[in-house]
């Protein structure tokens, strides 16, 4: 029972983190119908920028976080300009190929600048590394910070979509681009901001998670697959779905690792993607019958 409660606690905290990665994928997919395959590498870029500011530059944590998020935002804008806007005329599949090109360019740049300093860059924990004791469950305090931050980010995102004009523009463009254009919205610019917001989310996730995952140039793809599994499980178009998918994936991973074998933790995400796409194409909370298969 102790093991079970421990697994549940870890599952929920890692799941919340996968949800954060998935949210960025969902936001971009919802309005552009493109899965940004460079999403994971934006995560890596965010983490690496924070490492550069916080560990190498000695800048305090909060400004480092903001700088890293801003950096990822800018890279997101570049991604949209290079791999979406100029390729869209050749079809969505071409965009997908171009985003994987972006992914490898970012990974190569990451390896060039931050690689070769040992296998992993260790990001010092922001809070005390001592695990906290709740009853008889132990939780790493960094995981709690991530969980809290995920909740804050999700609340901010909900407010952004409900309360701000930019958020409403994005929703309008996602639901009907032609009508949005007729209302006078500059939808190409909104696509740009969508990519940028998705990238900023990835960057924020990268900074928050850096102390737990450590940083290496290939970390992006690993987390992209997990975020993708969470997003697909949730239905790819639904923000609550992404959160639910993330938590379920986190729990499934922990249970597989705890009761089968620790190596099974990684394979869960691949299986979820394959089987969810084939047998549950609209996910748990996705819009029914809307996906153009």
């Amino acid at each position: 029972m102790l093991m079970f409660s421990y697994l549940m606690a870890t599952g929920i905290t890692t799941g919340a983190f996968y949800a954060l990665v998935a949210l960025g994928i969902v936001i971009v997919y919802k309005s552009t119908e493109v899965v940004n395959l460079a999403h994971g590498d934006l995560f890596m870029v965010g983490g690496m920028l924070a490492y550069t500011c916080y560990v190498m530059g000695g800048i305090p944590y909060l400004p480092s976080l903001l700088l890293a998020v801003a950096g990822a935002f800018v890279v997101g804008i570049l991604t949209e300009r290079v791999a979406y806007r100029s390729v869209l005329k050749h079809g969505l599949a071409s965009v997908l190929v171009a985003t994987i090109g972006v992914s490898f360019v970012l990974k190569g740049i990451g390896r060039y600048i931050w690689g070769g300093k040992g296998d992993y860059l260790a990001f010092p924990p922001i809070v005390s590394p001592e695990p906290l004791q709740f009853g008889n469950i132990m939780i790493m305090s960094q995981q709690l910070v991530v969980l809290l931050a995920v909740i804050v980010v999700m609340a901010a995102l909900a407010l952004f979509f409900k309360r701000t004009r930019a958020g409403k523009w994005m929703q309008a463009t996602a639901s009907n681009p032609k009508a949005a254009m007729l209302c006078g919205l500059r939808i190409d610019r909104i696509y740009m901001y969508t990519f940028a917001v998705g990238a900023a989310l990835a960057g924020a996730a990268g900074v928050l998670m850096a102390p737990l995952t450590h940083l290496y140039p290939d970390v992006g793809f690993v987390l992209f697959i997990k975020g993708m599994a969470a997003a697909v499980l949730g239905g790819l178009t639904s923000i609550p779905g992404a959160v639910l998918g993330g938590v379920l994936l986190g729990l499934a991973e922990q249970l597989a690792a705890g009761y089968l074998h620790s190596s099974f933790q990684d394979v869960v995400a691949f299986l979820v993607i394959m089987f969810a796409l084939i047998f549950l194409p609209t996910g748990l909370l996705g819009a029914r019958g809307l996906r153009k298969v």
């Binding site: 100029s86 171009a98 090109g101």
Partner: peptide, 21 residues
């Protein structure tokens, strides 16, 4: 240079998708 290989192959994919798919 693995990093240069990645950058070059990624950039080739992007460049051909943009200019000559």
């Amino acid at each position: 240079f693995k990093s240069t290989q990645e950058i070059v192959f990624g950039a080739l994919l992007i460049a051909f998708m943009v200019f000559q798919p």
